[in-house]
Design a binder for these strands. Structure first.
Length: 651
DNA sequence: GTAGGGTTAG
């Protein structure tokens, strides 16, 4: 009896330990599947504290919890536990580990190290690695991996096809995407609705919405899901097809589908532009009805929508109402101010963000930098530069490019050059920022030099680069060079010129006094000329005192923008300079009948962080007298004008 | 009871 008791107890203990591990496992599994990954980790810790050894089923669950948390710290903690476990080399444990690192954005080092060491790689491991490279934008490595996979004789499945579709859309390569599409059909996964959904999104990201539509329309109605509708709506939103998005939304509701949070999120993206406020508000109200508007990502998108629809007050009050503001909430609101050039409010909110304990990231910083460039606030710009350094954000090329652009726009070639030469990596954006900086500040020769060096370095110019060099030609009056570049752009690089490029060419002709040629050029343009182009022609007519062509240009401007005062003033000046006083009078009546008022232009300058606004002949600054004295000593203002102000006792 | 996946704001 005694003997049997002593052997039975440890067996019982072991049995209960086993069953406790099993029940812990199901607890962990349930926590993960119900969306509480942190709870799963707490259970895991309790297991260890109670001396229960995790088994080969525990680790894949725990790995899944880590993938949901996307926390490198947790993943590494779990990894060390796995290393001590006898199940470490189990294929599912290894797959879980790999996926954990992929989701923490630790693809190149950690995830690949795990993958590289795996003995038997299953399709799931290949897919996880492929997806990882794609999500990390390592497209070349993703392609190599796929090749390796083929060489190893692993047959691609539906998930592989989805990974490849995302790869092609990341490269914006429609050709590659169509071959992926063909592969999908060949291996027979085209009926899988998830695969089709990926294709819809991928084609729209490649800029081919009609192919997205084709895939969408071919999906069998029995398998069509909300995600399919959402993908198609996102495609429309990204293509700027707001009405098409709304139509789809309507059909979706009509078809009995219940929109979800993503539907609202994606739809709102379509209306984040001026003149779309009404539709935006409609979707907002639908979001409220569906109960999506307590979600912080929807709220952030709403703030963005209102601000882009030029309703910044609604955006701000919505932002103020958000209880759990995230980094993105703050950034959206800061970006709203920054985009309209309101640096003061943007900076105020930025300081409030820091005070609230939220860490600004590179997007926040880029918005602030661009606001500085817009208003010419070099001091603030430099301060944000050093701030970006202190936060380790300047190593990102996007931040450096934004700084380059800002220094160029602020006219500080020295800062721009210094930064440019210190950069390890330079993209087409970096070069274009430099070129356009020189072009804007009248150093056309340098702009063209930089352009040539850039070409020698093997980079391919885009339409913005060409705009910058054309502007350089306009400023220097380099007619032949301008035409040569224009032809190079269209013929060699196959870039179709936009309104801005055409405006440069018309400007180039007009400023040289070739007004008739300029007019003919505008009339023969393949796209409809906008107000900017007519305004350029009108100002050329002013320089060369040509009232006839000027009248023609002004006529178009009055049609396009009847409320803009500048063309009336410009035309009146042309009449005056050619002695046609009847014309001056007719403009005056026209302004009256169209109820146009000319407000004086204003300029803003920042000194020591304070903004000063001033106008022509402004007499309101407390140190006005001194300012005009300095201007006079520089030969920019006559003694007589100063005396006039003095006599009027303005100072 | 175990893996890899579709839409997703700045």
């Amino acid at each position: 009896m005694r003997k049997s008791k002593s052997t039975v107890t440890p067996i019982l203990n072991r049995f209960s330990k086993f069953s406790r591990v099993t029940s812990m496992n199901s607890g962990v599994r349930d926590a993960v599947s119900q969306g509480y990954p942190d709870k799963a980790l707490i259970l895991f810790r309790q297991m260890k504290q109670n001396g229960l050894e995790p088994n080969k089923l525990t680790f894949p669950f725990i790995a899944k919890a880590c993938t949901k948390l996307s926390s490198l710290k947790c993943s590494q903690m779990v990894h060390t536990h796995m290393l001590k476990s006898p199940y470490y080399s189990d294929k599912y444990v290894q797959s879980g580990l790999l996926n954990m690192y992929v989701k923490c954005d630790e693809v190149e080092n950690f995830a690949y190290a795990v993958f590289d060491r795996m003995h038997a790689r299953e399709i799931a491991a290949w897919n996880a690695m492929l997806m990882g490279f794609v999500q990390a934008s390592c497209f070349d490595r993703a392609l190599c991996l796929f090749n390796e996979m083929m060489v190893d004789g692993v047959r691609p499945d539906s998930v592989t096809v989805m990974g490849l579709a995302q790869l092609a859309s990341g490269l914006k390569d429609v050709k590659l995407l169509t071959s992926v599409h063909c592969l999908g059909i060949r291996i027979g996964v085209e009926a899988d609705v998830s695969v089709a959904n990926t294709w819809i999104a991928a084609y729209s990201r490649c800029g081919d919405l009609s192919l997205s539509e084709m895939v969408f329309n071919e999906i069998d109605l029995d398998v069509l899901t909300v995600v399919s509708w959402n993908s198609m709506i996102t495609g429309c939103a990204n293509a700027g097809e707001g009405f098409m998005a709304m139509e789809l939304y309507h059909n979706m509701l009509y078809g009995g589908f219940r929109p979800d949070l993503s539907t609202i999120l994606n739809l709102l993206g379509s209306f984040a532009k001026p003149n779309a406020l009404l539709l935006g508000k409609l979707v907002h109200s639908h979001g409220v009805q569906l109960g999506c508007c307590s979600d912080v990502s929807v709220l952030n998108t709403l703030v963005c929508m209102y601000s882009r629809c030029a309703d910044i007050d609604s955006a701000r009050s919505l932002f103020d109402s958000i209880v759990d503001r995230t980094r993105v909430s703050w950034t959206v609101m800061i970006g709203s101010y920054a985009e309209k050039g309101d640096l003061e409010d943007a900076m105020a909110l930025f300081h409030a963000m820091e005070a609230a304990g939220e860490q600004p990231d590179l997007v926040t910083v880029i918005y602030l930098i661009s606001a500085c460039g817009q208003v010419g606030a070099l001091d603030y710009g430099r301060w944000i530069d050093s701030y970006a350094i202190s936060r380790g954000l300047k190593s990102d090329i996007r931040v450096s490019n934004a700084l380059l652009d800002m220094y160029s726009k602020c006219g500080s070639a020295r800062d721009a050059e210094e930064l440019f030469s210190s950069m390890n990596e330079r993209t087409i954006v970096s070069w274009t920022a430099m070129i356009s900086g020189y072009a804007l500040n009248g150093q056309s020769g340098k702009a063209l030099d930089y352009f040539n060096v850039m070409l020698m370095s093997g980079l391919e110019p885009n339409h913005i680069t060409f705009l910058a060099v054309l502007q350089a030609c306009v400023h220097a009056g380099l007619m032949e060079k301008g035409w040569e570049l224009f032809h190079r752009m269209t013929e060699l690089y196959k870039l179709s010129p936009g309104l801005d490029h055409h405006a440069c060419m018309a400007d180039l002709l007009g400023r040289q006094g070739k007004l008739k040629e300029a007019l003919e050029y505008i009339q023969c343009m393949p796209i409809k000329p906008d107000a900017g182009i007519w305004a350029a022609l009108l100002s050329a007519c002013k320089i060369h005192r040509n009232a006839d062509i000027g009248e023609y240009a002004a006529h178009h401007l009055f049609e396009l923008e009847p409320q803009a005062a500048a063309p009336y003033v410009e035309m009146a000046n042309i009449y005056a300079s050619t002695g046609r006083w009847d014309g001056v009078a007719s403009i005056r009546t026209k302004m009256k009948s169209n109820q146009v008022r000319k407000y004086p232009g204003e300029s803003t300058i920042q000194v020591d962080g304070k903004s000063y606004t001033f106008r022509v002949d402004d007499k309101f600054h407390p140190k006005g007298c001194l300012i005009y004295e300095v201007l006079s000593s520089l030969g920019l203002y006559s003694k007589k004008q100063i005396d006039t102000f003095r006599s009027e006792e303005f100072f």
